[in-house]
Amino acid sequence: MSVFYDITVSHFLVLAAALFTVGIAGVLLRRNALIVMMSIELMLNAANITVLAFSRGFAGNNHEAAYQGQAFALTVIAIAAAEAAVGLAIVVTVFRTRRHSDIDRLTMLKN
């Protein structure tokens, strides 16, 4: 069972794919805006795992290339923090005016 013993880059990548799929499930299937935002964070994390796995696995002896991935992942974390702040502000505003945060009932912009 060397699949279980020899951890390759692909193990990290497939785990990231699984986390991404769970995030997509949360975005598509849940109706609570906060759960949807948490699922988006989950997908961002999956992308970060992918970036780091590639940077760790394929940079070769080029350490600068390996650090490119880490710098990119750090940028993604910062952008995710900004996105969470703005998104939560929007959720709070919507809740204040509509008294719910159900994304299926937020159809003011329809038609």
Partner: peptide, 19 residues
């Protein structure tokens, strides 16, 4: 931040799943 917003909202949902 999420916990703060949950404390503000604090409203159970009727039907959590779309499908």
């Amino acid at each position: 931040l999420f916990v703060f917003v949950i404390m503000i909202l604090n409203r159970p949902e009727d039907e959590p799943w779309v499908m």
